[in-house]
């Protein structure tokens, strides 16, 4: 079955949506998050990190640009990189924060406002869009 959309009727359903999305991802670890301001991109990452039981809860990286969260899997330290490119103006600035390292490695990398770096996307990138349907209702569209 091909899933094109995941309906999220309320905030607590986001947990299940993350699980479904991980099935859709099927091992792909570079996840690009589209959606307007307030659509719930950071909230999605927070629940995503919660699923992996990261040591630190996800916070907005709008100011810091890059947040890294760690979790342990198979006795090894794993990392989820959480980037927000909202404040960047061109692709050079993205290159200068070392974005290629995050796109090339074997770890999870979730990027909010990724439009700027589309030319740098690896071939197996997973692009999703969060869409507001109503108050507290969202839909994840697999692009």
């Amino acid at each position: 079955m091909i899933i094109n959309e995941i309906f999220i009727p309320n905030l607590s359903a986001l947990k299940q949506a993350v699980k479904t999305l991980l099935k859709v991802a099927n091992g792909r670890k570079k996840i690009m998050l589209y959606g307007e301001m307030g659509a719930g991109k950071t909230t999605f990452v927070r629940v995503f990190c919660h699923h992996f039981k990261t040591k630190q809860a996800a916070q907005s990286p709008t100011f810091s640009l890059i947040n890294e969260y760690y979790y342990i899997e198979n006795n090894r330290n794993q990392r989820i990189a959480h980037l927000d490119l909202y404040r960047l103006k061109n692709i050079e600035e993205a290159l200068n924060i070392g974005i290629e390292d995050y796109l090339d490695d074997e770890q999870y990398c979730l990027i909010e406002w990724p439009d700027l770096i589309e030319p740098l996307f690896p071939p197996d990138v997973l692009k999703i869009k969060l869409e507001i349907i109503g108050d507290n209702q969202r839909k994840i569209i697999i692009l």
Partner: peptide, 21 residues
């Protein structure tokens, strides 16, 4: 804060209102 900082709340709601970020 569990998510956005207070300053970010000012900056981003301002953006929704069409003010410069």
């Amino acid at each position: 804060t569990l998510d956005d900082a207070a300053g970010e709340a000012f900056d981003k709601t301002g953006k929704l209102l069409g003010l410069d970020y």
